[in-house]
Amino acid sequence: MARFLIGRLWQSIVLLLLVSLIGFMVLNLAPGGPLSQFALTPGMTKEALDRIAEQMGLNRPLPVQYLDWLWKLVRGDWGKSFRDNRPVLDVIGSHLFATLLLMGASTLLSMLVGAWIGIRSAVRRGSLFDYSMTVLCFVALSVPTFWIGLVAIFLFSLRLGWLPAGNMYTVGDGSVRDILIHLVMPTCVLALVNVATWARYMRTATLEVINQDFVRTAHAKGLAPRRILMKHIVGNALLPMITLAGMQLPTLLGGALVTETVFTWPGMGRLFLDSLGYNDYPVVMGLLMFSAILVLAGNLIADLLVAFVDPRIRLE
C-alpha cells in the first residue's frame, strides 16, 4: 500500500511538472502579453507598459520566470492574480464551490438516470426500450453541450419562461430554493453527455452479471429476480463505476467549462475563460495545475476506494 502510494505520488509529480511546463510554454511563447489589455487606455504609452512589465518581472528570461514560479509553487505560493492581486488559490477557491456544486449535481443525476437506463436496457435486452436508448445515448454523446444549452435556454427561458437563462442566483436572493432553480438547466445539460456514458457502461456491466453462473443459480433457487439482480449488480458493477467516475473527471471539468459559459455560471470554467481573456497568466497556470491535481486526486481516490470496497484487489 505504502509502496503504491509513493509510486503514484512520484508519478503524479512528474505529470504535474510536465503539465506546468507545457502550460507555461504555451502562455509565454505566444505573442502579446498580460499587459496588452491596457493598450487602449487613454494616455497609455509603450514606455509605461514596459516599465510595469519590468516591475512585474515579465522581462526576465523565461527559464528564470518558470523556475521562480515553480519554486514558489513548491513552497505553497501560487502567485497572485494580475487582475485583482489576490492569491491565485483564493481566486480559484472562490469559484470552486459553484463548479463543485454543478459537477456534483450533474454527476449524481447522470449516475442515477444512467444506471436506471443501463440496467433496464440490459434486463430487456433487444427490446424497443433498449434499442431506442442505445440510439439516444449515441446522439447525446454527439451533441455539442453548448448547443443543447442554447436550445434549452431558447425553449425553457425565452419561449416558456419557466427557468432563468443563466447565473447561479437572483441578485439579492440567493436562497437554497433560488439556487436550485438556477441549477436545473445547467445540471441537466451537463449531465446529458455523462448519462450516455453511464448508461452504456451499466448496460454492459449488468449483462455480464446476468450471464454469470451464480445469478442463474440464484434464479434456480427461486429468489426474486429483481432482488438477485440488484444485489449482484450493486456488488459487481459498483467497483468499476467508481473508477469510471474518476476517469470521467477531465471530461466533466471540460464540460463544466462550456456549460458555465453558456449559463454564465460563476465557476472555475468561467474563471478560466475570463482569465484567458484578461491574460491573467498566474490564474490560468493555477487553473491548469489545479484541474490536473483534481483529476489525479480523483483517480487516486477512485483506486483507493476500489481497494477499500474490495479487499481482493491489492494496490501495487
Partner: peptide, 14 residues
C-alpha cells in the same frame, strides 16, 4: 498521461 490529465478543452483554449 500528462496530456490526458487535464481537460483537453482547457489546453485547447489556452
Amino acid at each position: 498521461d500528462a496530456f490526458l490529465s487535464f481537460p483537453s478543452v482547457f489546453l485547447l483554449l489556452t
